[in-house]
């Protein structure tokens, strides 16, 4: 009787374990990005804050009319972020001394190992070989963990929809342009050539080249080359990255590295706990209730007769 019970216990917990078996981390080691990944080099020293990239994005992605027209510069009074109506926004930051104030365009940085992708429990995100991080609205449940996980605060949610709210974020114009080798709409429209589209590996070389050629113009750092495991969008600037609102405290590890400690522990618990606690159970209960053991002993014997 007892043994059968024990086996049943093992079976049930084993079944529970096998249910969760896939969750033992498929987390990748260190992924440097696809070799042919495309990217965009954002030279913030060239940006004049004309907001034409915002307008082009709005048109390309068929987003609703903006609250403030795209030629209105009053929006620079405050720091904006991406929303369900705007996949990219340009912000103005404080200038050093007498320089012109720097502007920075903000959109999804298309990480090599995206936090949104690794946190999604229905696998709605895909990092394509072209470098875009795209999103499948068909499977999205709306838990919004990706918004929590994004270190750059990019994904927005269409909260206003009651029937089908979805994540809204820049997808590198994947379906309409990138897939066909064309640059995204914002890059194409930029009148200052502040945005350069190309192979990510080439862009990194180009960035370092610019820094070497005109060291007065740039801080010697390409933001996004290593940050958070590397991003497809890269930034050059005259001032330090923090000054144009880029978080420099995040380190060079992708988001998933922070979660690995936990994911690594999962298979241990699944395999050790059943044996450990069943063992403790045997230890804890066998020698108690001496009387009972005796009684049951005889019951069992008699029952068999």
């Amino acid at each position: 009787m007892k043994r059968r019970d024990f086996l049943k216990g093992c079976l049930v917990s084993g079944a529970a374990a096998s249910l969760c078996a896939p969750s033992k981390s498929w987390a990748v080691g260190s992924f440097e990005g696809y070799p042919d990944s495309m990217g965009v080099l954002v030279d913030t020293t060239r940006c004049i804050g004309c907001r034409s990239c915002e307008a082009a994005c709005n048109k390309e992605q068929k987003l609703p009319e903006p609250d403030v027209p795209f030629d209105d510069t009053s929006v620079f009074k405050e720091k904006r972020r991406t929303t369900e109506k705007a996949y990219t926004v340009v912000n103005r930051y404080e200038a050093n001394d007498a320089q012109k104030p720097p502007y920075r365009k903000m959109q999804c940085n298309h990480c090599n190992e995206p936090g949104c992708l690794t946190s999604c429990f229905v696998n709605a995100y895909t990092k394509t070989k072209e470098g875009a991080v795209i999103y499948n609205a068909e499977v999205c449940v709306g838990c919004r963990t990706c918004m929590v996980a994004c270190p750059f605060n990019i994904p927005a949610y269409s909260y206003s929809s009651a029937i089908s709210p979805i994540i809204k974020k820049c997808i590198f114009c994947y379906h309409t342009r990138l897939k066909f080798g064309k640059p995204p709409a914002c890059v194409e429209i930029c009148p200052q050539e502040a945005l350069t589209f190309g192979l990510r590996s080439d862009l990194i070389k180009m960035g370092h080249e610019r820094i070497r050629e005109t060291p007065d113009r740039y801080v010697d750092h390409i933001y996004g080359e290593k940050e958070m495991g590397g991003t497809s969008w890269l930034y050059l600037s005259r001032v330090s990255a923090e000054q144009i609102g880029l978080d420099t405290t995040l380190g060079n590890e992708p988001i998933i590295s922070n979660v690995k400690d936990f994911l690594g522990m999962v298979p241990m618990v699944l395999t050790i706990w059943p044996a450990l606690f069943t063992g403790i159970h045997l230890l804890a209960t066998r020698n108690k209730n001496h009387g009972d053991v005796h009684d049951n002993h005889s019951e069992q014997e008699d029952g068999k007769k």
Binding site: C20, P22, S23, S25, W26, A27, T118, S119, C120, F121, V122, N123, A124, N136, V139, C143, T145, I256, V259, F262, L263, V266
Partner: peptide, 12 residues
């Protein structure tokens, strides 16, 4: 429908 087994929330 769709599995994201490397995600913590999947486990939850």
């Amino acid at each position: 429908v769709s599995f994201g087994p490397a995600a913590v929330l999947f486990l939850v």
